[in-house]
Design a protein around this nucleic acid. Structure first.
Lengths: 285, 285
DNA sequence: ATGCCTTACGTTATACGTAATTATT
DNA sequence: AATAATTACGTATAACGTAAGGCAT
């Protein structure tokens, strides 16, 4: 049977034009390449080259063979890549969430429960999350609501609540006790951290006239929170995870949209394998 | 790099289910197959099997790998077949003709002029011949007319004329001197040899009510010509090639369709290589 | 007990590099 | 002289089969 290395040799010869140059590129000796091509011709029972005493050129058969060889080599490459990709998928649990907070606890939990598995997480918009769950891109997703799909398992866990954070001198700081509506802040320039997912859409919806200064670097964001008067946001979860800023007043928000329940969702077919994870989730308070 | 034989081994394992059976089918020992699969896994850096102490099964990666392996093996097979087919084409001159006579002289002529080449010939209908010439199926075709294509070289050579052959006692035998029209014979049962190509369509056209007893075997055909009173046909060419029947009268036919000029045609691009053949063709008388 | 897979071991075959040969520019 | 391809030859690697071992049905 034809050998893959022979096809590589053939492709290399086509690329470099002479046996010597091709052999050099292949890191084999010229005679080895010469023999390899002779064997290929023997194998195919066809001459692939026009040979003169010290010249060798692909003939029509050879040209055709090169085309095939290229395609075959490509599909062998594809095979390796795709099988490796499938393997990687099979040993990673991928979590998609509409907001960052669930990943802070779920990723370490999954790591502990499924040692040897790689855990990956990303923040995405809801339609993408559902699509990704169906396509196998995610094994678990976190949404603010139940998608109501009979094929999916859905478990409500924690609740996350948004707070406005202000420096004590800010005009709205006195609302810390009464709370306020997000609309009252509309038009003000506010500081946001990037990749906050669903929260971003809440801000855009309720504060359509505000300017959002979006920071992609956590350190820079913290620095700006510490040193400017700009309003910003935290949640009960981010406070627990990153700590409360001492120089900031927390103002509760009265809009119902500023609280969301985490709905952890997986395919029912995958639930048995993920049972341990779902069982350790904190219950709905 | 992955080896083709490993892919064959993998496909065989998938087909037979156990290493032992697959090994037997592959005519190798069981340990050899076991090692081959281990190497493939090593090569792909992926486990392809679920192994228990004395059981082995394809896992998900393995299933996927089998699919790829199948496709690759198929394309390797294709490569061999197509390259071999191209090679065969390159060393055969294929002649297509609308009637048999040109092949009787052209095939030996081509054999002499192009030693080492295989000469093949077949009788086909005109549209198929033109199509085949364009697609490379034929290098030379013979038609009764000029297709008038600027890409094609066309040279008129010999003329073939159809005769009715009758036993001397037949009512029409007296027309041997005056000749007759084919229509006069319409309705009679006549004897025909198969693969006479274009001539057959002439018969069908001019004798729509006749029954044609078509003989596929030349010896049987001759036997029937010798022993029955059935009208049959010969041409100036077949008489020269096979000899005239002593017990038959030749009646010339007066329809213009019963004479055709051989138009030898090839692609202009191929003419240089076929020049020697075209130059030895007899000229138009 | 039989079937099935893996590991170990010695052998063989095949693919390689070096060197020599021939031909071309 | 320099470049390029093939042939010849000795060697080393890697693939095989046999034999042995372990585990399930």
């Amino acid at each position: 049977m034809v050998d893959i290395t022979q096809l590589q040799h053939l492709a290399a010869f086509h690329k470099y034009g002479t046996l010597s140059q091709a052999a050099e590129a292949l890191h084999i000796s010229q005679p080895a390449l010469s023999r390899s091509m002779q064997k290929l011709e023997e194998e195919l029972q066809v001459s692939l080259f026009d040979r003169q005493k010290n010249k060798i050129r692909l003939n029509h058969n050879g040209q055709l063979a090169v085309d095939h060889a290229r395609r075959i080599l490509e599909s062998v490459q594809d095979m390796a890549e795709q099988v490796q990709a499938a393997d990687r998928r099979s040993r990673t649990i991928s979590l998609g969430s509409c907001v960052p907070a669930p990943t802070w606890t779920a990723v370490p939990a999954l790591s502990n429960l499924y040692p040897g598995m790689t855990i990956s997480s990303e923040i995405q918009e809801m339609p993408r999350l559902l699509e990704g769950l169906r396509s196998g891109l995610y094994q678990i997703i976190v949404l603010p609501c139940d998608p109501g799909d009979n094929e999916l398992y859905c478990q409500v866990s924690d609740r996350e609540t948004l707070f406005l954070t202000l420096p004590p001198g800010h005009p709205f700081a006195k609302k810390a006790e009464t709370g306020m509506y997000l609309e009252e802040l509309d038009g003000e320039t506010v500081l946001l951290f990037s990749t906050i997912g669903f929260w971003h859409s809440i801000h855009v919806k309720l504060m359509p006239h505000s300017r959002f200064l979006i920071q992609h670097d956590r350190a820079t964001f913290n620095e700006l929170v510490n040193t400017t008067m700009l309003p910003s946001f935290m949640t009960n979860k981010s406070i627990r995870y990153f700590g409360k800023k001492n120089n900031r007043v927390l103002v509760p928000l009265l809009n119902p949209e500023t609280s969301i329940d985490f709905h952890y969702i997986c395919k029912k077919s995958k639930y048995p394998k993920l049972k341990a994870f779902f069982e350790q989730l904190p219950g709905k308070e």
